[in-house]
């Protein structure tokens, strides 16, 4: 089975609130001293792919669209024994949305060849849009299943388990197929062996520019303009606890109950 896993490099979502700052002009988060990491759901996707490859023969290609730094995500994938890796490099100054990302990924996938299974993370820890997988499926004209956490190969196709709000579902699917992967106890990302990390530095990564994919900057830009961030701000956060005061405990409980009730009702 030929598997393609899309990876996104994002600003470390664990950046502590006090260290998190944004540029209100460009509507972007400021990296500051924080690191760039691979989005966790993408890592879950890679893990799911690795497990699938352990059960049935296959080949894994890791693909990312992002600035040159995103190569780190690919190196990590190679350290985890992905078979090949491809970076579509863009200008770090431009921010992209799900629509442009899907467009570019689809073009890259067509150029890379035929794949049976294309996997993305359910959403990214930065913008959390959760749209890329579905959009990519439409770009490629393939069926799509979201929130998958387990994949078994079955005959010509695959059997999937996917999470729903209340439980899970078993889905039978033909290939080729696009899936979005969510986390479960089973697909906790493994960590690479040190030797493999060292070896991965020597492996080659295919690197393309947009023009290599037959895409023009304008084409990508116009696609991106359909969805524009017009504001980004830090929500006001009250720092101090408002202790409920009152003359008697009954009074306090009454006030406490009212506050709880209003939250419960709006939730």
């Amino acid at each position: 089975m030929k598997i393609l896993v899309c990876l996104k490099q994002i600003l470390d979502p664990e950046i502590p609130p006090r260290d998190f700052t944004i540029n209100r002009e460009t509507h972007q988060a400021i990296q500051g001293s924080a690191n760039l990491v691979t989005n966790i759901f993408c890592e879950n996707a890679l893990e799911t792919a690795l497990q699938l490859r352990e059960r049935s023969p296959g080949e894994i290609t890791a693909l990312t669209f992002g600035p040159a730094s995103a190569e780190d995500s690919l190196r990590k994938a190679l350290a985890l024994k992905a078979d090949q890796a491809c970076l579509v490099e863009d200008d770090p100054a431009t921010s992209h949305n799900s629509a442009t990302t899907a467009l570019v990924l689809a073009a890259a996938i067509r150029k890379l060849g035929e794949f049976d299974l294309i996997m993305v993370g359910r959403e990214a820890g930065d913008w959390g849009a959760g749209q890329t997988g579905g959009l990519l499926a439409e770009q490629l004209g393939l069926p799509y299943v979201a929130f998958v956490d387990h994949i078994e190969s079955a005959g010509d196709g695959v059997t999937l388990r996917r999470q729903t709000e209340l439980g899970w579902e078993k889905v039978e699917a033909h290939l080729p197929l696009v899936v979005s992967i969510t986390n479960s106890e089973e697909n906790v990302p493994r960590i690479p062996k040190t030797r493999d990390i060292m070896m991965s530095a020597r492996k080659s990564v295919t690197s393309w520019k947009l023009s290599d994919l037959g895409l023009t900057d304008d084409e990508v830009k116009s696609n991106g303009e359909a969805l524009e961030v017009v504001d980004l701000y830090l929500p006001e956060k009250k720092s101090d606890c408002d202790f409920i005061e009152g003359d008697s405990i009954d009074e306090k409980i009454d006030e406490f109950a009212k506050r709880l009730a209003s939250i419960v009702q709006s939730a």
Partner: peptide, 22 residues
């Protein structure tokens, strides 16, 4: 819900529109 989340981007893709979630 799960199904709506699954359909949103695809429907946008099919209708030639643009999508967002949450």
């Amino acid at each position: 819900d799960t199904y709506s989340q699954e359909l949103t981007p695809r429907l946008a893709g099919r209708l030639g529109g643009v999508s967002a979630g949450d």
